[in-house]
Design a protein around this nucleic acid. Sequence first.
RNA 1: GCCCCUAUCGUCUAGUGGCCUAGGACGCCGCCCUCUCACGGCGGUAACGCGGGUUCAAAUCCCGCUGGGGGUACCA
Length: 492
Amino acid sequence: MTSGAPTTPSSPTTPASDVRVRFAPSPTGMFHVGGARSALFNWAVAKRSGGTFVLRIEDTDAARNKPEWTQGILDALAALGMHSQDPTFEGPYFQSQNVELHAEAARRLSEAGRAYYCDCTREDVAARTGNPHSGYDGFCRDRGLAYEPGRALRFRTPDEGETQVVDLIRGNPVFPNDSIEDFVVARGDGSPVFLLANVVDDMDERITHVIRGEEHLPNTPKQQLLWEALGATPPVWAHLPVIVNEKRQKLSKRRDKVALEDYLADGILPEAMVNYLMLLGWAPGNDEEILPFEELVRRFDVADVNTASAFFDVKKLTAFNGEYIRAMGVEDFAAACDPWLHAPRAPWSEEQFDAAAFAAVAPLAQTRVALLSEITNNVDFLFLDEPVHDEQSWAKAMKPPAAELLPDARAALAELEAWEAEPLKETVTAVGEKHGLKLGKAQAPVRVAVTGRTVGLPLFESLEVLGRERTLARVDAAIARLADAAAGTPAE
RNA sequence: GCCCCUAUCGUCUAGUGGCCUAGGACGCCGCCCUCUCACGGCGGUAACGCGGGUUCAAAUCCCGCUGGGGGUACCA
């Protein structure tokens, strides 16, 4: 404020800062795209500020936690670029290893009179208030109950005043204290609940900014009260808008496709997913959207994140993925396709697969796939013994004069000297003209005979790679089928 | 019920009182390119929820309404 005071120099090298953010998932299922976005925003803040990203696994719900889910979280974060080899990354810590600290915090709260023991059941409370949703009525507040197994510890919330939360995204929401019930901080068996454990861990890990989903906003005044009661300065909060489905409900594991792994298995590139997720609720400005993560980070400020919920649009994600695929070098593209070129994802065997043939055709396929998984159908005709039988394609392409054209094409192809794309194209063009067809029409029966489909890679390059022998055999098979159909013996 | 958040094209968003006859992207439609399908190029479609204020001036500020969402557990 004072004029003349030295301002912070803007250094080209990011100075190490005290900013410590965290991502604290619980390992109760497949890793969620919503979680991925929260992690990414935290990661971006840490990167941007030169701070630290702490990963904490909240594994205290023994009944629902499974170790494989924890590994799933680690793998998913790593796939998106957040891994322990990066100096920004700290952890993972496990909440279950901090139970002593949680218990001590509960004890302090109790001893300081900030919390009290309660033996009411839900039914007791509901019977007294007449409303199952009205919250705890404070019945045990001044009964001076000592701890006994079965008695929960409740935090004594202030009766008056209000609690204001400092939130970078939402302004500073104010909650009337009389609307905050005396919530449970430790269960009847002494174990801490989320509200407490989460706060104690954040204090322990010296978290300065809590950036999480909007669904936690109602927890925030309670947690802030806990921070204060425990004698610490609350962090700065930032509540991200929720991600919703087409019905504008929060994405849920039950009804929506939310597992990051599923999208990767479809052939969404991690970079595309990162780019898309960063743009859900935030825009880098300048009318630009497709940007590398480093650039996104450079422009990112959590305070600029939107407040309204955002629809997870798979179509736009897919479009982004197409952009990323087309931007790759051909070799990288081919390498990325690899998992979809072999069993079990591909319907052909290792013996049938021909790497050289794929390499020849990869550049042609690159502009035609938006998901890597689509590569399989684009090149299957090269590796399968017979082309796929797509009956719709057959019906569309094998109308007259296909039955006459195909034998002519077969004959011309058999005599072609150079089995290369250009002469192949000239040959089919000539045959088509003989039947009064332009190339566009004339190529269709040949395409379906050889590849099984009306759509696909450029035909003549495909034939060149397939080879004369296999091409002719397939055309022969199609001619035979057409003849059978004409003779009244249905091929089907 | 109570508490809280929220509202620009179908969708993601730009917009911080005049640059807005509201910009970009996805989607959709048309044209061009073209051996199919894509890619690419060009063009089009389409929005400030409603009602009051404040102001010379409001998508932008205020209030109300309506709509949407989240939370309301001895889950996290």
